[in-house]
């Protein structure tokens, strides 16, 4: 009897890893969209006067296996994605931020990107808590499926997250949890095929902000669902 049970479990474990081209294509689109999501990238903060913050974010990209079916897609993303971010912090706790990157060209790709965020922060004892909504939208044109082709990948992300942080001297560690919804499309030039995809996934992370006068240095670890982890590092200045 136990051999039957063992055989059943082994057969189940064999099935778990099997996949289809659609699942692989959807996963690749998910990963590339979530990597461009607009995450907190800073500890929640409550300010006493109107404050403008400019920051330079760097998102090192994880290694991506681009195999779909029996084909390795020639997708060759940059190893680091930079973003210039601005945030307006109001004494009442409101926060408005965004990035806009028109027409970046790298290698054989061209990318447009915009993201916005709206948040509200509140101080609870020694803790700062923040509720934030974010939106990111963009497209990447280039040889995604064939060298020399101009394929087009478009994405739009909507996210909501809750973050909590507490300051210890010059350091402010924080945690956040959230939920993302994405819509993506990949238009393949050679075949004229359109792969569209919708997905939602929980995300979470932790980070720490180092505060030195008007300067802010930030490190953040992100986790999306159970298949994507990435980090970001930021340098910001408050005016």
């Amino acid at each position: 009897m136990r051999w039957i049970v063992l055989g059943f479990l082994l057969s189940l474990s064999g099935l778990v890893g099997q996949t289809t081209f659609q699942e692989q294509a959807d996963r690749l689109q998910n990963i590339n969209a979530y990597l461009l999501d607009f995450r907190p990238a800073a500890a929640p903060d409550v300010v006493e006067k109107i404050t403008l913050e400019g920051a330079f974010d760097l998102y090192p990209q994880p290694s991506i296996n681009t195999r779909i079916g029996a084909k390795d897609e020639p997708l060759d993303p940059p190893s680091v994605v930079p973003k210039l971010r601005g945030r307006l912090l109001l004494p009442q706790g409101w926060m408005l931020g965004g990035t806009y990157v028109p027409g970046i060209e790298f290698q054989d790709y061209k990318a447009d990107y915009i993201s916005l965020e709206l948040g509200y922060r509140v101080r609870i004892g020694k803790y700062d808590a923040g509720l934030r909504a974010s939106y990111a939208d963009g497209d990447v044109e280039g040889p995604i499926t064939e060298n020399g082709a101009t394929d087009e990948f478009t994405f739009s992300n909507v996210g909501f997250d809750l973050s909590v942080g507490r300051q210890f001297g010059q350091f402010k560690p924080y945690l956040f949890v959230g939920q993302n919804e994405i819509e993506t499309e990949l238009l393949i030039e050679e075949d004229g095929a359109l792969l569209d995809n919708e997905d939602d996934a929980p995300y979470a992370g932790l980070g720490v902000t180092y505060i030195h006068g008007s300067w802010r240095l930030n490190f953040e670890q992100n986790f999306t669902d159970d298949y994507l982890a990435f980090i970001s590092v930021s340098a910001g200045y408050r005016f």
């Binding site: 890893g17 692989q24 994880p62 195999r67």
Partner: peptide, 15 residues
């Protein structure tokens, strides 16, 4: 805990 990883299913065998 700093890590950077993406499981794309690219290594999975076909169904």
């Amino acid at each position: 805990t700093a890590c950077s990883d993406a499981d794309t299913l690219g290594d999975e065998p076909p169904r």
